[in-house]
């Protein structure tokens, strides 16, 4: 389990906003091993979002190198990065980012549409992923017919569909109530422990971070602390002790 999935060496990121130069990252080095569950924390403006964008291959560092799964991605072109995102990374967003007026199954299929792999069983694959996140029977529901937690499950199924190396979740519980948040974290823990999938969660909630194995803190573009979580919380067990709520029904959730 010591294989390195992510190696970040002295990366910086400088934005120019008009006359102002913003140093979003000021030389960050970081290694993440395959199969780890990492939480990234920090106040807004700390550079954690910028780091996530770079780790997610949505952005390129100004300097430094980033090696993902043995590939130096800091020099790749726009379309090559798109290919990497498609094949190796699954995104989960705070606002779910599902396509409106599109069924859950079709939302989940979306990454396969841009995959070079032959996908004859595209629809079957999407149905299996939805079943895995606990949404069997809701494949044809549109996002506006699903609750927030259900929408996030669709988003997780979409992230999983292409068998990625890593899941990047940016504030995945930011728009959810606390019980649903625990449910989503339980899903991530299950993915991490049972499938050995690497997961990085960005959050500003300390108790959400405690479900991970390692917490990295950012401030002013610097990595300020990097500590293992000695006793991670177990979301599944907590769910059993939480009072059971009436099952979520098709309540409209405004984003």
């Amino acid at each position: 389990m010591a294989e390195r999935l992510i190696e970040i060496d002295q990366i910086t990121k400088i934005y120019k906003l008009g006359d102002v130069t913003v140093h979003a990252l000021r030389g960050v080095s970081l290694e993440i091993e395959r199969g780890s569950f990492v939480a990234i924390m920090g106040p807004s403006g700390s550079g954690k979002s910028t780091l996530m964008n770079i780790v997610g291959c949505l952005d390129k560092p100004t300097s430094g190198t980033y090696v993902l799964d043995g590939v130096n991605v800091s020099t790749l072109s726009r379309d090559q990065l798109a290919e990497i995102r498609n094949q190796k990374i699954g995104f989960v967003f705070q606002q779910f980012n599902l396509l409106a007026r599109t069924s859950a199954a079709e939302n989940v299929e979306l990454p396969l549409l841009y995959s070079s792999r032959a996908a004859a069983d595209r629809h079957q694959k999407a149905l299996r992923a939805l079943d895995w996140v606990g949404l069997a029977g809701r494949e044809q529901h549109h996002p506006n017919q699903l609750s927030g937690g259900q929408q996030q499950r669709v988003a997780i199924a979409r992230a999983l569909i292409n068998d990625p190396q890593i899941i990047l979740a940016d504030e995945p519980t930011g728009a959810l109530d606390s019980r649903t948040s625990v449910e989503i974290m339980a899903l991530f823990q299950k993915l991490n422990r049972e499938s050995g999938l690497s997961i990085i969660v960005v959050t500003h909630e300390p108790d959400i971070a405690e479900y991970s194995d390692r917490i990295i803190r950012f401030k002013d573009g610097h990595l300020v602390s990097d500590q293992p979580v000695l006793a991670p919380r177990d979301a599944k067990r907590e769910l059993e002790t939480l009072p059971a709520e009436e099952p979520e029904e098709a309540e409209a959730v405004t984003q």
Binding site: R78, D79, N86, N97, L110, Y114
Partner: peptide, 16 residues
Amino acid sequence: TREIGLRQAVGAKTKD
């Protein structure tokens, strides 16, 4: 725009 961003995030290339 958001839909386009999402499609790009999940791997849509310029050509797509």
